[in-house]
């Protein structure tokens, strides 16, 4: 199929902003609407846009599928590990053990920030892998 100039240009310019918006949703998840799952899905939709417009092989050089598999598995392990951190410091599962910052700033709400990042990367890698194995 012939490559369309408009689709190529628009997707190339648009994809970094979609990825940036996904990272914004993840990192401000505890202050504004958004969070790990939503940000992860937006990240994955940016990568799917690249898959559809630039082809799977050239996108795989930037986001290698083997590393996505590894990231998806390790993020789940890290989530369990951070949840058990509450048990180790003498509380219950998924209890906060980091200092609470001032409310309204980004480094606040204890380790919710890190949990959001972990969940966001896991969901983004997972949905990207689903679409990769479907589009292949």
């Amino acid at each position: 199929m012939k490559e369309s100039e408009i689709v190529s240009l628009v997707s190339r310019k648009l994809a970094p902003y979609i990825l940036l918006f996904g990272l914004y949703l993840i990192s401000y998840g505890h202050l504004s609407p958004g969070g790990g799952f939503q940000g992860g899905v937006v990240l994955a939709s940016g990568i799917i846009l690249l898959y559809l417009s630039r082809g799977i092989a050239s996108t795989g050089k930037v986001f290698p599928q083997e590393k996505l598999v590894v990231a998806e598995i390790w993020m789940f392990f890290l989530l369990i590990l951070m949840g058990s951190g509450g048990l180790i410091t003498g509380g219950y599962f998924l209890e906060n053990f980091l200092p609470l910052g001032k409310a309204g700033e980004v480094p606040s709400a204890g380790f919710i920030f890190f949990l959001n990042i972990i969940i966001g990367l896991k969901v983004g890698a997972g949905i990207t892998l689903i679409s990769f194995y479907l589009l292949r």
């Binding site: 609407p33 799952f37 939503q38 899905v41 937006v42 994955a44 939709s45 799917i48 949905i127 679409s131």
Partner: peptide, 10 residues
């Protein structure tokens, strides 16, 4: 946000 990203996008 979740509905727009999952339902209308992916």
């Amino acid at each position: 946000i979740a509905e727009a990203a999952v339902g209308a996008g992916v």
